[in-house]
Design a protein around this nucleic acid. Sequence first.
DNA 1: ACAACCTTGACAAAGCCCTGGTAGGGTTGT
DNA 2: ACAACCCTACCAGGGCTTTGTCAAGGTTGT
Lengths: 115, 115
Amino acid sequence: MTIGEAGRHTGWSPRMLRYLEEEGLVVPARTRAGYRRYGIRELNQLRTLAALRSAFAVGIDDLAFALRLRRESDLRAAVETWLEGTTEPSSQGVTPAWVEWEQRKQERLLTPEAA
Amino acid sequence: MTIGEAGRHTGWSPRMLRYLEEEGLVVPARTRAGYRRYGIRELNQLRTLAALRSAFAVGIDDLAFALRLRRESDLRAAVETWLEGTTEPSSQGVTPAWVEWEQRKQERLLTPEAA
DNA sequence: ACAACCTTGACAAAGCCCTGGTAGGGTTGT
DNA sequence: ACAACCCTACCAGGGCTTTGTCAAGGTTGT
């Protein structure tokens, strides 16, 4: 299935399909001559992507970031630790020791040169 | 610790601290008169945030999305399922049945009105 | 009381994201 | 061989993000 056909089946313009490939979100195989070849798998990705966007107002850059999170484990660890620091309820005035400890963990993650 | 002091300690401008609050990334408590009150917890969040940005080139919107992922479980499930469809190795020409099945899972997640 | 700080709200410039279009050239099925 | 399609590379414009600045007014420590 060529890029034009894929576009007609999914509602994306060829231009956008090339853009999505550039962003690493939907990367089709190529023929020997360089033509993009979309299969069932890619079609489903494209339809799902469109649905995600309209149902949750998720941007392309957001999905790209989610991909980065899956691929770069350092980044994932740092972000997760930061999220913990953000989401934990945190008592009002006092700062319990474990909070400090959590935050230290972040600093360690973010300064790899201290090895 | 007031917004100005927090800024001096972390390198953020007061303007940016208000912006970060607006985005839900670092939300300080308030005094009865409405002044923002930054504690150790917030200072650490701010420093870590700056480090994340410069070490991994992560945008503020990216972190905001990570927060959304943590809070909205529907969104998280949909994105994770989509990621699986994207990252799985996928054999060349044929489309094994389990891929179809995976993709169906996504469609189910994205059409809640089909209940 | 007064200086120094805080509040919200608005405007604005620089820059990036998204998307379309166009130009010049290669591939393919009939 | 020809029409219809695909490729890459570039420019462009509307919209959003990021950040600063200014205005008019409230709070606070000395």
